[in-house]
């Protein structure tokens, strides 16, 4: 088989890619768009017009990046623009419910299209083709990695926000009577949650001018020495604010565990149930709750 004459001028990697794009821009654009449609339009993630616009934008930014010339390997503004495009694109896909792997498959398909075009052309030497392949692999891997890192960061932020929301909503402090606050604690009580609960509680005591706080721990699954320490701190903080604390809902198994841990709640007023705690709070305020006999 007769081989074509190699060009006498040795072209750099980016020049080869620019040549290729110039020659086959229409074809490349069509193939990339087709790949995009297969991945996104058929799955109902993007419309055909969206894919068309994203394809054009990608090609435009890709050409701009190639035109950076000798600075192509460096972190140029053109590369930053390309990264920004992919980050925005990935975010749009996420918003529309696509999985990250769909995005990765799309980036791989872009890379594959460019490589296949290069393979079809026989005008470049093995070394030149290899250089182009390496450059494309490096850039696209970096782009995927950037997007993946951004995706992870966003996920972490979402989880943190959800945890914060859960913490805020899991400590409903209610003024059940004038000067009486109730605080049902549900779930586990770790350091950060204890901190939030205490801050919110002390602020509410000041705001409501509360005199008694009933803390109900019926919903706390286990109380170890650390949790009991937090509870004692809360009781002390309530006392420092000038209010009185009543601890209710300590289950028998928890009471047994506390004694085995040598934790002394001797200075803390305790009652078996929230109802008993409220009765005690009312008694301290001189409030009497009576059943009014019906006729």
């Amino acid at each position: 088989m007769e081989r074509k004459q190699r060009p006498t001028v040795v072209k750099s990697t980016h020049e080869i890619l620019i040549d290729q794009l110039k020659t086959n821009l229409g074809h490349l654009s069509a193939v990339i768009e087709e790949q995009g449609k297969a991945l996104f339009v058929e799955a109902g993630i993007l419309g055909a017009q969206d894919v068309h616009e994203y394809t054009l934008e990608f090609l435009e930014l890709f050409v701009m990046w190639l035109q950076a010339g000798s600075r192509i390997g460096a972190r140029t503004p053109e590369l930053a623009a390309l990264e920004q495009f992919f980050s925005g694109f990935a975010r749009q896909l996420q918003i529309r419910g696509a999985r990250l792997e769909t995005f990765v498959r799309y980036v791989q398909s872009l890379q594959r299209v460019l490589i296949e075009e290069l393979e079809e052309s026989e005008q470049y030497s093995f070394e030149q083709s290899r250089e182009v392949l390496l450059l494309l692999a490096r850039v696209f891997n970096q782009l995927v990695l950037d997007v993946f890192q951004a995706y992870l960061r966003e996920k972490e932020q979402t989880i943190e926000l959800q945890q914060e929301e859960l913490r805020q909503t899991s400590t409903p402090i209610t003024e059940i009577w004038d000067g009486v606050l109730t605080l049902p604690i549900i779930g586990s009580l770790d350091s950060s949650r204890a901190m939030i609960v205490m801050e919110k509680l002390l602020t509410r005591i000041e705001k409501e001018r509360a005199r008694v706080v009933v803390m109900d721990v019926t919903g706390v699954l286990a109380i170890d020495s650390q949790v009991s320490h937090y509870l004692i701190q809360m009781v002390r903080a309530i006392g420092l604010m000038g209010a009185e604390a009543i601890l209710t809902g300590i289950r028998p198994d928890i009471a047994r565990a506390l004694t085995s841990l040598n934790i002394d709640l001797g200075n803390v007023t305790t009652r078996g149930t929230l109802s008993d705690g409220l009765k005690e709070a009312f008694r301290r305020l001189g409030i009497e709750v009576r059943v009014v006999a019906r006729e």
Partner: peptide, 14 residues
């Protein structure tokens, strides 16, 4: 003692 501020009560209790 009167009017202990929430932040002061918090740090003292800890």
């Amino acid at each position: 003692v009167a009017n202990v501020q929430p932040a002061a009560a918090y740090t003292l209790a800890r």
